[in-house]
């Protein structure tokens, strides 16, 4: 019975993230549009776009290799698996122990590795510029992310997300400077990793500062649809991560009855709506940076996370 319930929750989670991801992006777009006094596309537009793209034929560049064709599926799969391992509405997922937080980051790293390679496959200058900038941003964002994991892991004595979430919900946490620093760093990294406004602009095209759009420039049809979906999933993943670590209330604990997951689902929906709104407000209120300001921006995250970790070591009673 327990096994079936765990399996069901794990399966539900996999489908849930897949189903919700386009909705979240649609919500962010919609709020952004309203904030700039446009009506904006309907909430379900991303689903329609995906379906339309999937049914179109693929136009491949003449010299595109097998890697170019396989990469979208690999990127999507790695992102999907990573997203399915972050607790959304319940902790203690069936397979949550198969990869801890470090492995989840590394899975996203795999996705990025293939995306950057795919950008270079056709051999156009735009693809190269996108890949080159993407790896530059990643080379700063990833260490920052690992340092955030360090501070969380040192507090919770675990790199397992479920355990971290359980710890964060327990009364023993209290208010800590380290947590505030980790949250700040995580927000900065999440914005950068998802190619959001101060670092990259998801809505641009044909602009020299673009990063993500430049890498996927040669993609079309179902390949593009899968890549877009992977991108939606990544946004959802970071939102769920922030929600499950810093706003863990409402998560159904392992072994609870049927009601708790349902409540968790409601809470999760609320968290995503609030998170999406905040992201949209943030994006409309700042301007995009020059690409070489991005290292400074990410450097802040790296320093915050490192200071947070050091603070744990230095402060008396910081570590039990």
């Amino acid at each position: 019975m327990c096994l079936i319930r765990d399996l069901a929750i794990q399966g539900a989670q996999m489908l849930l993230v897949l189903a919700l991801a386009p909705l979240l992006t649609g919500w962010v777009r919609r709020v952004k549009a309203r904030l700039t006094r446009r009506r904006g596309p309907p909430l379900l537009q991303p689903y329609r776009d995906l379906w339309r793209l999937m049914r179109k034929e693929v136009v491949l560049a003449e010299n595109a290799s097998w890697l170019f064709r396989a990469a979208p599926y690999l990127i999507f799969a790695a992102t999907w698996v990573a997203a399915a391992l972050v607790p959304t509405f319940a902790t203690g997922l069936m397979f949550s122990w198969s990869a801890d937080l470090i492995a989840i980051i590394a899975l996203l790293g795999s996705a990025r590795f293939f995306l950057a390679l795919a950008g270079m496959d056709v051999g156009t200058a735009f693809g190269g510029i996108g890949s080159s900038r993407e790896v530059m941003i990643a080379s700063l964002a990833e260490p920052a992310m690992v340092m955030i994991v360090f501070s969380l892991a040192l507090l919770a004595h675990s790199t397992q997300l479920s355990t971290v979430a359980d710890f964060m919900r327990s009364p023993s946490v209290g208010l800590r400077v380290t947590l505030a620093m980790a949250l700040g760093a995580l927000l900065i990294v999440a914005v950068a990793e998802n190619g959001r406004v101060p670092v990259d602009n998801p809505a641009t095209h044909l602009e020299l500062t673009m990063v993500h759009e430049a890498m996927v420039l040669e993609y079309s049809g179902r390949h593009l649809a899968v890549l877009e979906l992977a991108n939606f999933l990544k946004l959802l993943l970071y939102m769920s991560l922030i929600a499950c670590v810093f706003v863990p209330w409402g998560l159904a604990p392992a072994g609870s009855g049927l009601l708790a997951p349902l409540l968790g689902l409601l809470a999760y929906g609320g968290k995503l709506a609030v998170g999406g709104t905040l992201l949209a407000v943030f994006e409309t209120s700042v301007a995009k940076m020059r690409v070489f300001r991005a290292p400074e921006y990410l450097g802040v995250a790296l320093m915050l996370a490192l200071l947070g970790t050091l603070l744990l070591f230095v402060s008396r009673g910081g570590l039990r």
Partner: peptide, 29 residues
């Protein structure tokens, strides 16, 4: 997990959406 999800996604899309491919010169903006 990764290979299964990738294979599933590819199969589902090829089966239910489209599998047509056309070769053309690179777009390159």
């Amino acid at each position: 997990f990764v290979s299964m999800s990738a294979a599933l996604a590819a199969l589902a899309i090829h089966r239910f959406a489209s599998r047509a491919v056309r070769r053309a010169p690179a777009w390159d903006c």
